[in-house]
Design a protein around this nucleic acid. Structure first.
Lengths: 206, 206
DNA sequence: TTTTTTATATTAACAGTGTTAATTAACTTT
DNA sequence: AAAGTTAATTAACACTGTTAATATAAAAAA
């Protein structure tokens, strides 16, 4: 299919075409190896055309990072049916770890890379994708606090703490810092540590 | 001072000269903005000369990441005088957070960036800098376990958990994910969350 | 229908990146 | 003095994100 045919056929929403191509390459070759030129070549356009639809590369990354949140949110949604807030938090944690392990390029964009965040640095811009995820966590933390299942003093701090722990486990592992552990222990350390964390939380009640 | 004079004067250990120049620029302009050419220009050599002393850029980053561990280790050393292992862990945690905040470019190299790790991927190469830091943490964790101050089942998992929590707090903050919090709370969230974590650990004893 | 305007896409170019190969300059050894 | 060795250099490759100027197509106005 020649570029011209392509244009005719899929005209109308080049922005989306760029995004889906970017996503495809991004997921296959990783974030660093995805250049503007490779994206452009893949959809039969020149590299500079992309700049008519996105301010810069960061803007694409920001748009893609939303995809990650879509996946994560959809997975998290089903957990509202878990009535016990503590069990819900446990499930959220496990799901978070699983997501990070499954979609670790998206995870990188969502929670590690600076680039997507820079794209919303219009001072008053808020990070609504991350916000709603965090709010969901904080809500469950607050519910645990109300029911004396967790003795946090501050719901924000508690939620941030739980999030940090999950995030830390994911990233230390992903960035190869597990080298400090015996080789046979490395692959299950996240599970082991998660279980220890749950034990820790379970001991933190009135 | 002309390049020639410079050569005469500091001859003998160009490797070290490269490193100290790299460190200087690195700490000033950050890791991403430090290119081979800027390092070279700074010491009056051509960029390719660096490749006579370092395999590639990652090798420089690996060498620099050691500096970070030197600083951190030296600071941690004094804590062996804290006799109560639980208090020692608390102090280690605080110090870790402080270090990450103070030297956050080094921290990036030590615990976030993939580059330095890739440089020791000669299969059987071990990460001795990180190892000894982790061992120190695990030792104190084990001591707490022995004294029933912490009910972890596995010292490695416990140490990894504590480390992860600290690391997670640092990196989420550093990478701008604090945007989910009220503006006035953002700057003290690490302290708040750390205190919650200590409370959590304190409740985890026999 | 022809001309003008507008939107879209392209080429050329800039200023950079890490890195390799070939080459020159300097110092040792024979 | 000639040959060999080491150290540093220049030139070049194949990239990167991005901007300005240019061409092409479609739509609107004449």
């Amino acid at each position: 299919m020649s570029p011209i045919e392509r244009h005719k056929k899929e005209k109308g929403d080049l922005r989306r075409i760029i995004l889906s191509a970017a996503r495809e390459i991004f997921l296959e070759k990783g974030f660093d190896q995805t250049s503007m030129r490779t994206i452009a070549q893949n959809i039969g356009y020149s590299a500079t055309t992309i700049y008519l639809y996105f301010k810069d590369k960061d803007a694409i990354l920001y748009a893609l990072h939303k995809d990650g949140f879509d996946i994560l949110s959809r997975q998290m949604e089903v957990l509202i049916h878990v009535e016990d807030p503590f069990e819900r938090i446990k499930a959220m944690g496990r799901l978070y770890l699983h997501f990070a392990n499954e979609h670790h390029d998206y995870y990188d964009l969502m929670f590690v890379q600076k680039a997507p965040m820079d794209s919303l640095n219009g001072e008053h811009e808020t990070w609504k994708e991350g916000q709603s995820s965090f709010d969901a966590l904080r809500f469950s933390i607050q519910e645990c606090m109300d029911k004396k299942l967790l003795l946090f003093k501050d719901a924000d701090a508690g939620a941030y703490l739980v999030w940090s722990t999950m995030h830390g486990m994911c990233t230390l592992y992903d960035r190869g810092r597990c080298k400090v552990l015996d080789e046979e222990k490395r692959d299950l350390i996240v599970d082991l540590a998660f279980n220890e964390f749950i034990s820790l939380l379970e001991a933190f009640r009135a």
